[in-house]
């Protein structure tokens, strides 16, 4: 693994993150604690209606229009706060976005998720089949399309299992939270498991999406 992926590296390009919270190279990654921005504990089970209410309240408070008469540097700060509130809401309202954000926040980018080699090999194998199917003659294509349909069903099952593992991991994380801010080894383990599952989910979603276009042999 490259040295550039250390703690405090931009999650987009790997360059060091400056003290301003922005990446020194691509200026995209902002590092503010979105849970804190919304005044919430770092729990994964969030009441979405309550989140929306908080968002509306904060949006009014930080809206640049209410601060336009203030000095330039203060206006700048309110504008940044307003951006943070928007980003926090957009990130936290989605379950997977929330889990990904928590993992990043807690791991500080130090963890690199590892996909099981079987999954990556699976991707290569199914993609190979798909390519064969696209190139093949009519009869061959029909036989392959059938196989690919089976593969797609198998992958959808795998995805469903993964989603329920994610939900279980999220519940374990919430249950593990106490007053202390220091994370225990078992909490780190939960975070790592969540991160791995999120990574595997992306591979599965891509593969399932690519299989979407396969014509079924029945047609």
């Amino acid at each position: 693994m490259s040295d550039s992926m250390h703690r405090g590296a931009c999650r987009y390009c790997g360059a060091p993150v400056e003290s301003s919270g922005l990446c020194g190279r691509c200026q995209t990654a902002e590092r503010s604690d979105f849970f804190a921005v919304m005044g919430l504990p770092r729990r994964l089970d969030i009441d979405l209606q309550a989140l929306e209410a908080i968002y509306h309240r904060l949006s009014r408070d930080v809206h640049p229009d209410f601060h336009h008469h203030k000095p330039a540097d203060e206006r700048e700060a309110w504008l940044k706060r307003s951006t943070s509130v928007n980003k926090a809401y957009r990130t936290l309202r989605d379950f997977h976005g929330r889990v990904a954000y928590l993992v990043e926040l807690e791991g500080g980018g130090a963890l690199k998720p590892q996909a099981p080699p079987e999954l990556l090999e699976d991707v290569i194998e199914v993609q190979d089949l798909l390519e064969e199917c696209r190139r093949g003659e009519e009869t061959e294509r029909r036989a392959l399309a059938d196989r690919l349909q089976h593969e797609r069903e198998r992958l959808l099952d795998q995805l469903a299992r993964l989603e329920s593992d994610l939900k279980r991991g999220a519940r374990e994380w919430d249950a593990s939270l106490g007053a202390e801010t220091e994370r225990s080894p078992s909490q780190r383990q939960i975070l790592r498991a969540l991160q791995d599952l999120l990574g595997q989910r992306v591979y599965l979603l891509n593969l399932i999406r690519d299989l979407e276009g396969v014509p079924s042999s029945v047609a």
Binding site: P117, V123, Q127, L198, G199, V202, Y203, L205
Partner: peptide, 13 residues
């Protein structure tokens, strides 16, 4: 070498 990028789901052999 088979590796993947979990951010985007790219797989490389």
């Amino acid at each position: 070498g088979i590796v993947g990028a979990p951010e985007c789901g790219d797989v490389m052999k």
